[in-house]
């Protein structure tokens, strides 16, 4: 089962939920992979300090010009929607950092003067901690295209009984790439006006993707009732509530899993699993 942990914006507690959920599932003997898809800022490793055992480069396709064959016809430059190829005074220049790897230019070139070459966009790192597989992507600094890397990072979870995906924040392409193919999405928010606003954006996005989802409320004891009211109207189950507890915030600030420091909170995760089972069976 693949569960994606997502939110409409950063700082709602996505990483707190994913890191502690993975810890709990691993502890009760499941075979678990924790996949950190926030490739700009992977933070789950802070809570685990895993032993890294593998590291793979991730490349993607970009065009390269063969200046001998190129006639300067400009067809490629006219075609490219992303401004990644220009033709100036008969010379073709490519800008791989703007390229989306659609291969259109390569297919279009009448003299086959564009060749496929690869560009490194980042790395996938694999780590282990007490049987828990931790996978993260590191986007190369200066690289704008994270979705192809996210796709690669996710591939490493295949084969595990439960795969927890910590998604990048927001509702744009990277988040969608991370959520895609999941069996279930757990949205994380706080019961505040900002939290509600961001939740609505995330809900719209997940509905577009057609994946079943439920809500996790972080710092559930602050704020007002509006998130509950919204969930009632929209028929969204709230299956995990983490209260506003200074000790949780302190554990987080020190890079510690709060379940390890405050084991009495395990009961909220027990309830979460029961709710998940119920949702799955209906």
């Amino acid at each position: 089962m693949q569960i994606a942990i997502a939110s409409g914006k950063g700082g709602t507690g996505k990483t707190i939920v994913s890191s502690n959920l993975a810890y709990y599932l691993n502890k009760i003997g499941k075979s678990v992979a924790l996949i950190d898809c926030d490739v700009e800022e992977p933070n789950n490793h802070i809570f685990y300090e895993p032993t890294w055992f593998a590291d793979e480069n991730v490349n993607r396709l970009v065009p390269q010009v063969d200046t001998i064959r190129c006639t300067g016809c400009e067809k490629c430059a006219e075609f490219c929607q992303f401004g990644a190829i220009v033709c100036l005074k008969g010379k073709v220049l490519t800008f791989p950092e703007l390229c989306h790897s659609c291969a259109g230019c390569i297919n279009i070139c009448p003299t086959s003067a564009l060749e496929k070459t690869s560009r490194k966009i980042g790395e996938v790192q694999l780590g282990l901690k007490d049987n828990l597989l931790i996978v993260q992507g590191m986007l190369r600094v200066g690289e704008a295209m994270s979705p192809p890397l996210i796709k690669e990072v996710k591939r490493h979870g295949i084969g595990k009984e439960i795969v927890i995906i910590d998604c990048p924040p927001g509702t744009s392409c990277p988040m969608i790439q991370a959520v895609k193919g999941s069996d279930f999405v757990l949205l994380v928010t706080e019961p505040t006006p900002f939290g509600l606003n961001d939740l609505k954006l995330a809900v719209e996005t997940i509905r577009e993707l057609g994946i079943p989802f439920a809500l996790c409320l972080n710092r559930s004891t602050i704020g007002d009732e509006k998130v509950w009211d919204y969930c009632k109207i929209e028929n969204i189950p709230i299956i995990l509530e983490i209260p506003d507890d200074r000790q949780i915030a302190e554990a987080y600030s020190q890079g510690k899993l709060f379940l390890e420091v405050l084991p009495h909170y395990e009961k909220v995760f027990v309830e979460l699993l029961t709710s998940l089972e119920e949702i799955k069976s209906c």
Binding site: F79, Q81, H100, C102, N107, I108
Partner: peptide
Amino acid sequence: CEGCGVCVYF
């Protein structure tokens, strides 16, 4: 869809 236009062109 990335809006690359490959399908449109070909």
